[in-house]
Nucleic acid binder design. Structure first.
Length: 625
RNA sequence: GCCGGAAUAGCUCAGUCGGUAGAGCAACUGAUUCGUAAUCAGUAGGUCGGCGGUUCAAGUCCGCCUUCCGGCACCA
């Protein structure tokens, strides 16, 4: 059962069609990239080329343009591309020996292609480089391509957006202009993708967050600092309740810690060294002492909870008998995220983390990881989340910035990475490799989710920290009577409230299951005559902590149903003459046309059961009568 | 941070050639008391994101800033 979910349906292992060069779609997209580049060079003569690969739903090409292109130029660019397709240009392949290839690239005045060619030759010891020509357009490229541009449907691609992108993905390099396009084998496939994209926009958490009054931002508070509105706070609170229950069962102990700490703490842990740029700047405080001197101190907003938890661990002597020791907190942390990274709830400057730190011995690491993985599995099962992949995030000793990014301890890296890989193999979990994705203090296991708009985001994480406990002087007395340094496992199954709620809003399209829904039941009267009956139902439900409310009464029934539906309220109770007389309610569930009339007590107990079980359905199916 | 685009009522948006702002929904008031996705009428709501410039005159043109959106880089 655990495996079935965690194997992620084999997604990580299958090579998708779009990234398999042998597939027709890959050839079409790759060839279209060349066609677009040809058209761009027609419109902006003298522009130079970057890369132009096929991607998941189409392709892009990077350029240094002589004159900017914007989306207003798309119609003309598309026209020119279609004209090229119609010409039936044949793709000719050519292998040029190194010197000829260099001469060709210089003649083409393509300095970036030349730079890449030199790197290819040096790294891979190539003796020749591959070029493709179609019509007047020549590109250094591995292929493969279609036979002629006539093999590409003229109505199955669509220019999508223009964006900036650094050459070779390095922010020290020049910024190029990237043009993205959708491309498919035929028009129906394109239409489907474009339509799916438009539907996805409707589920965007930023849009639904505003429409459903879940959260807001205000310039007077600051960028990336979410204000959770009452309805959004309900969702946070429900998730927090879930986390508390799961953690209680798993033997975690809850703690609470301040939002700030002295700057010196972060110097000691190494966070300042690695993440200074992403921390809010220090607060200087000065205290006058009676003798006229002053005490100066620096405080910082905490960018993570671990040092605080470490200090709880360090508050007294620890024995190996206490390990694993599990400390949990929904801690709020502050990070100075780059201005361009801030986006809705997905990337914020104040994060509420479902954080916990598990202190353990080396021998316990595997069991701790197994335990944490099964906690993740349980949380995802409850929420119905299935579309994710697992990434084993390792350090990258070859990274030129490696020394700045990671603790320099090759043996520790090798040992800890092997432990995690073994756990995954033992549990038969499929995972991707993530070289260079580790934390500075150790390898981690990240759970990657695809958002409704197609972005892949790291959501949950389990991290094995072999470095900071030692730096900060944590220890325990082992069964040998000697002092040892514990390992620390950092974990956050529910991620942060911010990113997790963003995911759930999009996952449920704003129509939350009853247990999570800000308003669980709305009672609608047929006319004001039934106000007292309806109010009685609301009062009774609220007395049982059900989030029930009465609809505004001056509207028509139709209007009230429309309003409640727009607000995506999961359960509507319609009451009129019949119901008031019989002590019944007519239940109308969100998205379900069929209704059922039942005694209120029956509805009430079905509702309570649905909420208690955290069912993904809105309420249990109405009893058949 | 970088490249590009955008910002008009709470929301979605219109605003022509530069001549001092408009709709629908929401809100509020009143009437209506209604049986399954918008009852009717009325009222109010704006320093057109901010600052500066050009002009007799700026929502409109120009500059800077802020914020948002699409990407890139970053992401403990």
């Amino acid at each position: 059962m655990l495996h079935a979910t965690w194997r992620g349906k084999g997604k990580a292992m299958r090579i998708p069609e779009e990234s398999n060069p042998d597939q027709r779609l890959y050839r079409i997209r790759h060839s279209l990239a060349h066609v677009m580049a040809q058209a761009v060079l027609e419109m902006r003569e003298g522009s130079t080329l970057g890369f132009g690969p096929p991607i998941e739903d189409g392709f892009y090409y990077d350029f240094i343009l002589t004159e900017p292109l914007t989306e207003t130029d798309f119609p003309e660019l598309e026209r020119r591309m279609k004209r090229i397709l119609k010409k039936g240009q044949r793709f000719y392949h050519e292998e040029l020996p190194i010197e000829d290839a260099y001469a060709r690239l210089d003649e083409m005045r393509e300095p970036y292609k030349r730079e890449y060619a030199e790197e290819l030759i040096e790294k891979n010891g190539l003796e020749a480089l591959s070029f493709y020509r179609n019509g007047p357009f020549l590109d250094m490229c591995e292929g493969p391509h279609v036979e002629t541009t006539r093999d590409i449907a003229r109505d199955a691609f669509k220019l999508r957006s223009v964006a900036g992108a650094y050459w070779r993905g390095d922010s020290n390099n020049v910024m190029m202009t990237r043009i993205y396009a959708w491309a498919f084998a035929d028009k129906p496939a394109l239409d489907e993708a474009v339509e799916a994209h438009e539907l996805a926009q409707e589920r965007d958490h930023k849009k639904l967050g505003r429409e459903l009054d879940l959260f807001t931002f205000d310039d007077a508070i600051g960028r990336g600092l979410p204000l959770w509105m009452p309805h959004g706070t309900v969702i946070r609170d429900e998730l927090e309740k879930l986390a508390i229950e799961l953690e209680f069962k798993a033997g975690y102990q809850r703690v609470a810690t301040p939002h700030i700490a002295k700057g010196s703490l972060y110097r000691q842990t190494g966070h300042l060294e690695h993440y200074k740029e992403a921390m809010y700047p220090p607060m200087e405080v000065v205290e006058e002492t009676p003798d006229g001197s002053s005490i100066r101190e620096t405080y910082m907003l905490k960018p993570m909870n671990c040092p605080h938890h470490h200090k709880i661990y360090a508050a007294r002597l620890r024995s190996y008998r206490e390990l694993p020791l599990r400390l949990a907190e929904y801690g709020q942390v502050y990070r100075w995220e780059a201005s361009g990274a801030v986006s809705g709830l997905a990337r914020v400057r104040m994060l509420s983390m479902n954080d916990a730190h598990i202190y353990c011995t080396e021998a316990q690491i595997k069991d701790v990881f197994r335990e944490v993985i099964s906690e993740y599995d349980e949380a995802y099962r409850i929420l119905g989340l299935e579309d994710y992949t697992i990434r084993l995030s390792r350090w990258d000793p070859d990274d030129p910035k490696g020394r700045e990014k990671y603790v320099d301890a090759p043996d520790d890296w090798a040992r800890t990475e092997a432990i995690i890989a073994e756990v995954l193999d033992d549990m038969d979990v499929d995972y991707e490799e993530g070289p260079g994705e580790a934390a500075f203090y150790g390898p981690k296991l990240d759970v990657m989710f695809r958002t409704i708009t197609g972005k892949v985001e790291q959501l949950s994480t389990v991290q094995l920290d072999f470095a900071v406990p030692g730096r900060i002087g944590l220890k325990y007395i082992g069964d040998d009577g000697a002092e040892h340094v514990p390992y620390c496992v950092h974990r956050a199954p529910l991620s942060t409230h911010e990113r997790f709620v963003a995911l759930l809003i999009e996952h449920f399209g704003g129509a939350f299951p009853t247990w999570l829904a800000p308003v669980q039941v709305r009672v609608i009267t047929v006319s004001e005559h039934f106000h007292d009956y309806a109010q009685g139902l609301v009062d009774r439900m609220r007395a049982n902590f059900v989030r029930a409310e009465l609809a505004s009464e001056s509207d028509t029934v139709s209007k009230k149903i429309r309003d409640a539906t727009t607000r995506k309220i999961p359960n509507l109770l319609i009451v009129g003459e019949r119901e008031a007389t019989d002590g019944t309610v007519t239940l109308r569930r969100y998205g379900v046309k069929q209704q059922a009339t039942m005694p209120f007590s029956e509805f009430e107990s079905a509702l309570a059961e649905t909420i208690r079980r955290r069912s993904l359905a809105f309420v249990a199916d109405p009893p058949s009568r």
